[in-house]
């Protein structure tokens, strides 16, 4: 990983490319982020940087939080993420990371928490087929057969059944940065990204591009 930033999903819109084609984009308010802590090989066994995004309100600062930020003398941040960047030595505690680390036409990965769907059936959760809705079928959106009878006399592991869906960590690979607005700290990323509007996402350079 060469570069990474924390951002807030603002929403989706569309813009016109230079050839007049419509490009669907997601707007992400990315950064400015601050380097809060550096982990080193000697002290922690690996190298990484901890990055914070948006300041924490005064009333939400507890003593343990205060202690963590006082160690490095940075302002308490609401969202913290740790990144094992290739070149951690180039960053110092207190350095600011802005969205202009990314450029137009860069490929990025976006990590977010998907929208919650509650307790969902198999049709929604695993995209299984449903039964006929009419002609007396009586079988509409069920999970299907549980398996054979006395052999194995149990339901096989991995059988697709209803359960909780959503609120998962989801990574979308190889999205394109359409525009960088350094003035307003905005990244315009082509296509959809996980999570609701206002959700916190991580944008990093594409690792599989």
């Amino acid at each position: 990983m060469e570069k990474a930033i924390i951002g807030k999903k603002i929403g989706m819109t569309q813009i016109f490319a230079s050839d007049g084609k419509v490009v669907p984009v997601t707007v992400v308010e990315a950064g400015p982020c601050t380097v809060v802590q550096k982990k080193s090989l000697d002290n922690d066994g690996y190298e990484s940087v901890q990055i914070g995004f948006t300041n924490l309100k005064e009333k939400h600062i507890t003593k343990p939080i205060k202690g963590h930020f006082d160690k490095t003398g940075t302002a308490p941040k609401r969202f913290l993420r740790e990144f094992r960047l290739n070149d951690c030595a180039a960053l110092n505690v207190g350095d600011e990371i802005k969205c202009d680390v990314f450029a137009e036409a860069d490929k990025v990965d976006v990590i977010g928490i998907s929208k919650g769907k509650g307790f969902a059936g198999t049709v929604k959760r695993f995209r299984t087929h449903r039964g006929p809705m009419a002609h007396g079928s009586g079988y509409h959106r069920g999970p299907g057969s549980m398996g054979a009878c006395s052999t194995p006399s149990r339901v096989l592991k991995g059988k697709k059944l209803p359960g909780h869906m959503g609120v998962d960590r989801v990574t979308v690979l190889n999205l394109e940065v359409v525009k960088v607005d350094a003035e307003r700290n905005l990244l315009l990323i082509k296509g959809a990204i996980p999570g609701p509007k206002g959700g916190i996402v991580t944008v990093r350079n594409a690792i599989k591009a």
Partner: peptide, 13 residues
């Protein structure tokens, strides 16, 4: 947030 979205597309309208 909505105002921000409008501002982004404003120059293309």
């Amino acid at each position: 947030m909505e105002q921000l979205m409008k501002a982004i597309t404003q120059d293309q309208i």
